[in-house]
Amino acid sequence: MCPATLEIKNLGLSPYEESLQIQKELVASRRSGGVPDQLLLQEHPHVITMGKSAPEEHIIMTKEQLDDHGIRVFHVGRGGDVTYHGPGQLVGYPILDLKPDRKDLHRYLRDLEEVLIRSLSALSVRARRRDNLTGVWIEDRKIAAIGVRVSSQWITSHGFSLNVRNDLSYFETIVPCGIKNVEVTSISNELGEWVEVDMVSEIVIEEFSKIFELKVDKRLTDNAF
């Protein structure tokens, strides 16, 4: 049987609310079968997003401090606690139909972790899972966060954020994923060299298509002329 199609949408630097709107549209289209499985890739301007279970005190800064730093805050319908997104971080939102054979939320989370672990491995960064702490870790340093939503009919949205070369000091504004004293890291930080987000997204696309057994329909995803 031919593998199903995965369509890649590379949104570049995309305002959080726009990506949210696009996800909303795509979830509806995916549910009605109007589009194949999707992987939205982007970077966001500085934002803090709060999952449903996130208490306000997990944002450490005051509203004024956040404004000074140009950080916006969104409350969103995904699982998980608070997280930060900003330029230099690769954010991926898979809009997948998990029916009929992937209807397992834990398996979906582990699959997303596997995509990131293998991508990091391709970049010579050795990453791992930690028990009961969803996400991807380098030893005890967090490099990727995961928080997803499954809408009716098993359509996924939200997803993962992988620190590539972002300014990690912004994580000091929050208690990442509600875990206190957690150290965050990035690919550039681990390798000690500048790494392009575009290059990482190429690798993630490849690993993603392997893990989810999808064939990539790469519509104009690179900016090479």
């Binding site: 449903k52 319908g77 699982g79 989370l109 928080g147 939503r149 499954v150 009716s152």
Partner: peptide, 18 residues
């Protein structure tokens, strides 16, 4: 039928239940 009536959450996932 199949209309979402509630949301549940488990570890890192929010899910609509139809």
């Amino acid at each position: 039928k199949d209309e979402p009536i509630l949301e549940i959450s488990t570890d890192k996932v929010d899910a609509e239940i139809p």
